[in-house]
Nucleic acid binder design. Structure first.
Lengths: 202, 202
DNA sequence: CGACTTCTGCAGCGATCGCTGCAGAAATCG
DNA sequence: CGATTTCTGCAGCGATCGCTGCAGAAGTCG
């Protein structure tokens, strides 16, 4: 319900908030929540600390919005994968997406949802819990998708969808750790292929 | 070659350095390298900052020694697992050890080698790289063990030991992430069991 | 134009960071 | 014992942390 058809009165901000958020996301991705200082963030965003606070609230809110951006951007392969017609297709797309996203050249290696804040000091507990919920949410959505596959007869009726979802997400998170360790894309993709070669038997 | 049979001259330190290191390891484990402040570390160790520096050098050296302690303690299951007689036994023991260690009650959840410093600021780059090397070293030792299994005929001759080692370590690191997210021990162990049920076919 | 609103750059807040100088206490030597 | 050596507690170092008050610039309104 937008009542004003022209922009808000007053001086408009002199930077592109979307661009700035994208750059902030990359800094969080590379250095983690607590490892990304305001100085480094604002420098990458091309704005002053004051402008960042005016536009995004504070560091934690900035991270929240950066995580949303990450979910809709680099991590969008998950939502797309869930729409694959078969459970095997879903699993294959998720692992391939994880490998691709965590080993993109000229991008930080690893996954923001994993290395954003696995362990943290007290001040980072909020973000750490947010990311834990983010990861568990991904697992839950996958479980629901596999449940549907069981209902549809795509997976054997004795399949445990929760266990299967936990297995695939465990591999995906493990891939993110390996990528952060510098393991290359090809090796991880080969490993993902091998892991799904025994598919119907899990 | 110890030449002095009596202790060194001068006042001996008034605390147990082994105890202090153990407590420091637990703090690093829970909060990560950068998330563990000197104040929190020294409080847990029961000594002053000055004593810590005299005994361990600085924060980074303290972390190095804490990681050694972790390797010989909570993570000793890896070395034990490598001595299992069969490759399947090795893999089973590694995953079971990972599940147990990352979900121990009254201990930090997750793995120090993973959440100690996955992403970090500039000042944590040394430790981040150290941990990446630590993880890759575990993978290499597992690969060598699987290579031996191939040579001994325990694994089929067309098995790729590197790929298999990468798969098992990926699962182990994924388990560490899941544990850090609060996933319970039983669910993870069930998942590990299921992952190895198709063993000879990878 | 003048009135109004918002954004921007500067400077700096209090708190915490890892780390250390100093003086005295405490232990081991001859 | 005195001499020597090391450890300990206190206080505080400079740097950085996330964050903000203020004044003026810069834009949108009637």
């Amino acid at each position: 319900m937008k009542t004003k058809q022209s922009g808000p009165i007053g001086r408009p901000r002199g930077f592109d908030a979307d661009d700035a958020l994208e750059r902030a996301m990359l800094v969080f991705w590379e250095h983690g929540y607590e490892g990304a200082s305001l100085a480094r963030l604002t420098e990458a965003m091309g704005i002053s600390a004051k402008s960042m606070y005016a536009a995004f609230g504070n560091k934690e809110e900035l991270f929240h919005k950066a995580l949303e951006r990450y979910t809709e951007g680099p991590s969008a392969y998950l939502a797309r994968a869930l729409e694959e017609p078969t459970a095997l297709g879903v699993a294959t797309a998720i692992l391939a997406g994880a490998v691709r996203t965590t080993t993109r050249p000229a991008h930080p290696h690893g996954c923001l949802g994993v290395q954003g804040a696995l362990a943290a000091s007290d001040s980072g507990r909020g973000v750490r819990d947010l990311l834990a919920a983010w990861r568990n949410n991904g697992c839950s959505r996958l479980r629901e998708r596999f449940q549907r596959a069981v209902d549809d007869g795509d997976l054997p009726p004795d399949t445990d969808p929760g266990l299967l979802a936990r297995y695939i997400t465990t591999l995906a998170f493990g891939i993110a750790v390996q990528a952060a360790s510098g393991v290359g894309r090809d090796e991880l993709q080969e490993m993902a292929d091998a892991a799904l070669r025994t598919w119907p038997l899990l």
